[in-house]
Design a protein around this nucleic acid. Sequence first.
DNA 1: ATACTCTAAATTGGATCCAGGATCCAATTT
DNA 2: AAATTGGATCCTGGATCCAATTTAGAGTAT
Lengths: 246, 246
Amino acid sequence: MPRKPIPTLSDVFTPTETPAHLARDVIESALREAIMDGRIPPETPLRQEEIAALFGVSRMPVREALRRLESQGLLHIQPYKGAVVTALINQDAMDAYGVRLLLEPEALRLSLPHLSDTDLADASARLASLRSARDSATLARLNREFHMALYRRAGNARLLYLIEQELEQEERFLRFHLSAMGTGHQARDDHEALLDAARSGDESRALALLRRHLSQAEQAIRHYLADQDNPESPAGDAPRTAGEPK
Amino acid sequence: MPRKPIPTLSDVFTPTETPAHLARDVIESALREAIMDGRIPPETPLRQEEIAALFGVSRMPVREALRRLESQGLLHIQPYKGAVVTALINQDAMDAYGVRLLLEPEALRLSLPHLSDTDLADASARLASLRSARDSATLARLNREFHMALYRRAGNARLLYLIEQELEQEERFLRFHLSAMGTGHQARDDHEALLDAARSGDESRALALLRRHLSQAEQAIRHYLADQDNPESPAGDAPRTAGEPK
DNA sequence: ATACTCTAAATTGGATCCAGGATCCAATTT
DNA sequence: AAATTGGATCCTGGATCCAATTTAGAGTAT
């Protein structure tokens, strides 16, 4: 009996050459999903035996799944000590915004002339959903999908792959911290203007808007992280990662 | 007597950061090396049992090593069919040059003001070695090291990581095809001029040279690949490498 | 001879077992 | 009481065994 396949967008890059539901693939997808949407918070140690029991398999497929997740940067494995979920975006990882400021405008520039009405409608649909969505997880996902919809026709698979990597990292961060940051409306206006520029095919305006949007997002996160590390107004209590061992 | 009577053991023993030589890590490194320098050519199927026997271990550490190499893009694994070494740069992978044309000039721009005499000496040393090196493997490696030496001070770890990834792919390709391409001297002049511009801190000239260098390298490889696929003198041709099975 | 079917060998996926390192805790020492 | 040590326990790394799948080959019918 084929189990319900877990829809992962990484399937976009691996053209579903794995029709069989191998345990290791099921576990890998499930763990990635769980890590990405925060059900498994950062710093959580992953015990092979525990996961194996959870899925009703032996430790073997778990081990192979963990190895792959490590290569994808979601886990950190130390010999004889095990795997822990990697931390979210921190000050060091802010470098990614510098990279995105290079990659995404170029992707948009390449994609703009080839965007179809369907593509624009897809992006618009995400925006509409963004307005009504309440939970951070959905908001973060829609944000990524909106951006990718605009870049989709860039015609450079490698470029799109790298951008998606960065966007997934941001998504994971936003799922955790978006509500505490409270900059959703800011980004919404940016998105509206960006989509409008894309619709009219105004390249220079669209690129300028995207660059500004990314810069502001970087600044927002940078300030948020700085406040986390050194809270000046401890009114809104920062949910310090308690990390209670289960 | 203020003299310490007994030196601490940490002074006696160098705190080596790599104490454990796990089989899977040894195998992973060995296989990557072998794939990168061409001892295992593309399209080669890798049999777990064969590799295990070669290293005198069981299939288990081999399997974990293969998993990681797959995530790193060196292998392609299909369920129940096994792992094959991925093909080298092909027409599809030329996308990478578009990405490099974005990333590397930015890295050079960021790095240029902070390059020390030591960094420039390192780059110069690579150039000197490039002049005397004969085999493609060494040439390809020195090419990568020369570029990275110039970018080293960019101060954006993520950017440098991505560039290194792309350079390693190119290195792997060049180890195979550099001798057949015969464009080594072309690149040498580019490198000389680039290093000169970097020495004088002439940012705009250095960036222009780098962009031209990358564009020409892309064109050289593109033409080479086109000739491979569609040779002007169709004599006894090499086995056609069955393109996209789509 | 060619195409087809079915079987056996080859190969990978997964389960179970054992060994070695890491961690925690009590016992001993200072 | 604080620190060190011995050892019990947990967890991971690797080996071996069995199951599932693919592939190659023998055999048969057309």
